[in-house]
Simulated assay, not measured.
Amino acid sequence: MKPQSALTRLNRTLLAVVGLALLGGGLLILSAGLDLYRRWHLTPPAGWPLTSPGDVLLSAADRTRWSSQGWWWLAAIAALTIAAALALSWLIAQLRRPRPGAIPVGGTPPAEGVELRDRALSDVITAEIRSLPGVQTAQARMTGRPQHPHNRLDLTLTPHGAPSRVLQELCDGPLPHALRSIGADQLPTEVRLRVARHKPHRAE
């Protein structure tokens, strides 16, 4: 079992908090809309919002209480801007894959002070894959953590390239070479294959 990353724990915590808030709000509105307090002969606490179908979350007095204050709209706009910025930064963080940066070299435990930059390893893997027969373009990218790197390969095959043969060439050449270069026992690899389209031929 792999340990959870800090980003994964943060995501789950935020999703749990948002989910609980939405669930509580939904149950509150549903109980008032169905008039469950009266039907079940329940007495809500004093000041409890939405206790009957005719109740509203904000009364007319509450809605107009601060609207005449000059600072109210500035504070409201600032709060909404901050919330939107936080939501956008969270979304961007989800779309970005973590990069290992520097990968320890030498197996487990790794050799002290010996590291390999992930971009250097990706460039070497890319160059070796592009030299394989049947491969038109290739791009390797390292993701994950330094202790548990992952290899992601995006390959475009020539129109006549055989996927099974290319995968076998990967397993016989570039991937074992990458493992030996970092002294690791395994390097999880995700391969995405595409096939280039045939150019149209004019019939004469």
Rank of each mutant, 00 (worst) to 15 (best):
T189H: 05
A203D: 11
G25S: 12
S181F: 12
G144Q: 09
L167N: 01
L175C: 09
W71D: 06
W71M: 04
Q4K: 13
W71G: 06
A184S: 15
P200Q: 14
G106F: 10
L116K: 03
L7A: 06
L121M: 06
R38E: 11
L42M: 15
P44R: 01
P3K: 02
A84F: 11
P159D: 12
R152M: 05
L57N: 09
S131L: 04
L95M: 05
W40G: 13
H150K: 13
S68L: 02
L170Q: 04
H148P: 03
P146D: 06
D118L: 06
D185I: 08
L167K: 01
P149G: 13
A127G: 05
H201C: 06
L121H: 02
W72Q: 11
V135N: 00
R38C: 02
P159M: 12
R9W: 06
R202L: 15
L74T: 14
A196E: 02
L14K: 01
L50E: 10
P110L: 03
G33M: 06
L187N: 05
I29D: 09
C171P: 00
A93G: 00
Y37E: 04
G106H: 07
P174V: 05
V56S: 10
A46H: 15
V195F: 02
R39A: 15
A140L: 07
Q4P: 10
T126G: 07
M142P: 03
E190A: 14
P149I: 12
P133V: 02
L80M: 14
G161H: 02
R117G: 09
G183H: 10
E112S: 09
A120Q: 09
T189C: 11
L121P: 02
P110D: 05
R65M: 14
H148N: 13
S181A: 15
S131G: 04
Y37A: 08
L193R: 00
R202I: 15
H201Y: 03
Q136N: 03
W73G: 02
P49D: 01
S131C: 03
E112Y: 06
L88P: 00
A6N: 07
H198V: 12
Q139H: 10
A83Q: 03
V17Q: 04
I82C: 05
L30V: 13
R119A: 04
G24F: 13
